[in-house]
Amino acid sequence: MPTIRVTGLHVRHRKTVALDALDLDFGPGVHGLLGPNGAGKTSLIRVLATVAEPSGGRVEILGENTGEQRRRGTVRRQLGYLPQEFGYYPGFTVREFVAYVAWLKEMRTADAPAAVERAVGRVGLADRIDTKVRTLSGGMVRRVGIAQAIVNDPRVLLFDEPTAGLDPEQRVEFRELLRELGASATVIVSTHLVEDVAAACTEVTLVDAGRVAWRGTPGSLAALGESAGAAGSAGDNAIERGYTAALRAHRDSGRPQTLEGTAR
């Protein structure tokens, strides 16, 4: 049973088409969203986060149509969203920032304090919880962003470039957290780092020029890379070669390709 169902999604920014007749299903697990810059990854995440309005199509999250205002609140209560860029109020500490988002998410006052500490602990900032956000490094601010996203134990999590600014060790820890979250929630991670996908994702969706170029498991993308290696696809490892091979095949054919039985 998919938790997110996207049908005929169309998103336009002024005159350029960001997403074009997109059909996608996502179930529980960690889904990697790969693609070149400007492919439409952020547009898709923002529509799923109910922040941006699609110009056409239908988005159903947890069985609710997000096009209906009354249903949107129900969805938003079970949503976690880490934008690519976000700001914070200068005076806020980590605890206040995450607690403020917990308040915005209409969490019960009695549950919020413990949930805030738990979320901050899960991103490894327990010892900085009473530090001002503005004094933290870029990587730490991103982890605060991850903490606010997971504070309400959401059933749907949307991370836009979550590993940007994290050092290699923090990325490894974050992937561990992703796997943990993916055990119960539907987690969608947009990234341009192929190794994130290989390590943490159960499924990969390749987006190119507003369309789905390829879908499958990281394993099958690597397998595609192995077979494409002989054909001279660029990339330093199998999954990178798979990425370039899938993109090239998609651009050559002009039609979406799906490996049967791999998409959930």
């Binding site: 922040v51 609140g73 938003r76 949503l79 934008p83 976000f86 914070y88 403020y100 998410k105 209409e106």
Partner: peptide
Amino acid sequence: PLHEITAATPS
């Protein structure tokens, strides 16, 4: 500054 995060919440 928090608008992008705020916009995805029920509030």
